[in-house]
């Protein structure tokens, strides 16, 4: 599975855009605290759902206000308030898991999904940082041969690739008191990686 965001960056009410290797997603958290991951496209007119907003515990499209519930099914069309929208009007949804302080999305169906780390204990998100290097360059620097994450002592590093030449690094720690120090380390990683690339 692909780590796409820190849990702390998807609060209730947030509508979060995510990209990974050409796939555009929207993440949002419902009132029950469950995170949903859908294709970032309204089935009505194709507008990005990440431009939308939360109403009645549903994600509403900014363009015409169509509202989609936690199953991705359209439940309300403001221009036709009396209409019960057919069940065929729905978004394309992806399997989402929230573990180790991160949100993981399964972009591939079936058994070929990469593993996610064990979620023992509590993890505290530090920050997600965009570094202007390719995923392979960063993998090489972090000695990460495969998979999307690495555990080293009390830090969890996870990667995804929003666009060509940019890698998003998500960092979480076990001890909340070390977050500032970990953030400084992440900034120094960015500086050294981008300097090497120049």
């Amino acid at each position: 599975m692909i780590p796409v965001a820190l849990s702390m960056d998807v609060a209730f009410g947030d509508v979060v855009p995510v990209r990974h290797e050409g796939q555009e997603l929207v993440l949002w958290r419902d009132e029950e605290g469950v995170v949903h991951g859908w294709e970032d496209r309204c089935p009505h007119r194709g507008v990005r759902l990440s431009l939308g907003f939360i109403r009645n515990n549903r994600l509403a499209c900014l363009y015409h206000g169509w509202q989609f519930d936690h199953e991705g099914r359209c439940r309300a069309i403001p221009a036709h308030p009396a209409l019960n929208p057919p069940s065929t009007i729905r978004t394309q949804s992806f399997h989402v898991e929230e573990k180790a302080g991160l949100i993981w999305v399964a972009l591939d169906s079936g058994e070929n999904r990469p593993l996610i780390p064990p979620a023992e204990g509590t993890w505290h998100g530090v920050r997600s940082l965009a570094i202007r290097v390719t995923l392979s360059e960063l993998r090489e620097a972090l000695v990460l041969e495969k998979g999307q994450w690495r555990l080293s002592s009390d830090r969890l590093l996870a990667l995804h690739s929003p666009e060509e030449g940019v890698t998003m690094v998500h960092l979480a720690v076990r001890d909340a008191s070390t977050r500032l120090k970990a953030a400084e380390w992440l900034l120094s990683l960015r500086d050294s990686m981008e300097e090497i690339r120049c």
């Binding site: 609060a11 009410g13 947030d14 995510v18 920050r127 965009a130 666009e163």
Partner: peptide, 19 residues
């Protein structure tokens, strides 16, 4: 930011600030 086509998925702290 969107008027300049800035990809906001790269800036979670700015998204939190806007909210």
């Amino acid at each position: 930011a969107r008027d300049l086509g800035i990809a906001m998925d790269l800036y979670p702290a700015i998204r939190r600030f806007v909210r």
